[in-house]
Computed example of a mutant assay.
Amino acid sequence: MEIGLLTAFLGGMLALLSPCSALLLPAFFASTVGTKMQLLVHGAVFYLGLALTLVPFGLGLGALGSLLISERGLIIAVTAVVLVILGLAQIFGFGFDLSRMLPGATKLQESASTRTGLLRTLLLGAVGGVAGFCAGPILGAILTLAFGQSNLWNAGALLAVYGLGMVVPLVIIAALWQKMSTRARRALRGRTFTVLGREFHSTSVITGTLIVAVGALFWFTNGLVSLPSLIPTDVQVWMQERGTVLANPIVDMVAIVVLAAIALTVWGVRRRRNESATPQESAVEQSQ
């Protein structure tokens, strides 16, 4: 499962940097969002939009896979083959836009272009998770992997982590956008190269190779079951023990109080900034 989650996270990162729309979202957020605190808020809302679209897909495919659990051998074979095909399609630059299969996607895109503020960010997330010609094979691969899990919650977790893989680099790049040199931005976009007269893109080749490798692993490890865990067993036991400690009403109350304190602090800082800005604006108006 850890390999699947890692693949989903990397897939989200590479989808953000896909050739068709490389760095468009980070550039948009950097130009429209003000302070870094606002960027974090918009990043969280963007992720919520992603999750609202992606996670139900994962849950549905996981449920379908669980219904066919008696045919696990067939599921593993089909999943592995589809992953390899999608990986090769990504390498050679073939793509498709899954948003065309989503009812109401066009209306959501139109609404996102006309709205402002957090609502626009939410709608961008809802559409951005499934839109994109170049990112289509990547999302298709993660959805295929979710189906191969044959488990409702594991499949939903894969899509949630895929969305997280998009949001984390999005927020980081947008925060550093003004400080990044042209060379650094160009490096993030990747580059094209030619082999035997055919043009390839470095990001697509890396992504496709990753998908093909996961497809091969899925086949040779019985759906990633026989693959050694990335997290040692003793560490997993330690995490489970700590998890039982966190599942405590007192811990929940402390967490709520801390979150409330953070929210009040942010609200107080913003209010003071607004109050300090108001006299300055008034002074400017009087001077005019």
Rank of each mutant, 00 (worst) to 15 (best):
L145E: 01
V41I: 14
M101L: 15
G148V: 09
W238L: 15
L264Y: 06
L48W: 04
T194P: 04
E281D: 07
A141I: 05
G60T: 09
G215P: 02
V127N: 11
I262G: 07
G11N: 05
G43L: 00
W153I: 12
Y47I: 07
L210F: 09
I256V: 07
V225I: 13
S18P: 00
K36C: 06
M166W: 14
R271K: 07
G11W: 03
M13Q: 01
S70Y: 06
Q38G: 02
G95R: 12
P56E: 07
D97L: 11
A131L: 05
G156S: 01
L145C: 02
R271I: 01
L52E: 00
I138C: 01
L61M: 07
W177Q: 11
F200S: 05
A89D: 15
T106Q: 15
S282W: 09
A63V: 06
V45E: 10
R272W: 06
G49A: 07
A27R: 08
A63G: 13
G129I: 01
E110V: 10
A30D: 05
I3H: 13
V284Y: 10
F28T: 15
A77H: 09
D234V: 14
R120G: 14
S226P: 00
A184H: 07
E285W: 04
Q109S: 15
W219D: 02
V84W: 05
L152F: 15
G140K: 00
S111M: 15
S18M: 01
L230I: 03
R272Q: 10
L152R: 13
L123G: 11
Y162I: 09
Q109P: 04
G208D: 08
I76P: 01
R100P: 01
P103K: 05
S66M: 07
E2L: 14
T106G: 15
S18D: 08
T244Q: 15
N222Q: 12
T192E: 14
V225G: 00
L164Q: 06
V212I: 14
L158F: 02
A112W: 08
T53A: 13
I91K: 06
V78H: 06
M37G: 12
V257E: 02
L210N: 00
M101F: 15
R198M: 12
D252V: 13
A15K: 14
F220Q: 10
R270Q: 11
G125V: 09
G163H: 04
Q280N: 00
A8H: 10
L74V: 11
F92K: 06
A146W: 06
L176T: 12
A141R: 03
F9Y: 11
S229C: 01
A141Y: 04
R242T: 10
R186H: 13
V161R: 03
T116F: 08
I138Q: 00
T116L: 07
F46I: 05
G104C: 08
M166E: 12
L59V: 15
A89R: 11
A263T: 09
I172K: 03
R191D: 10
L196Q: 13
G87V: 04
L50C: 07
G156Y: 01
L118C: 06
A105E: 10
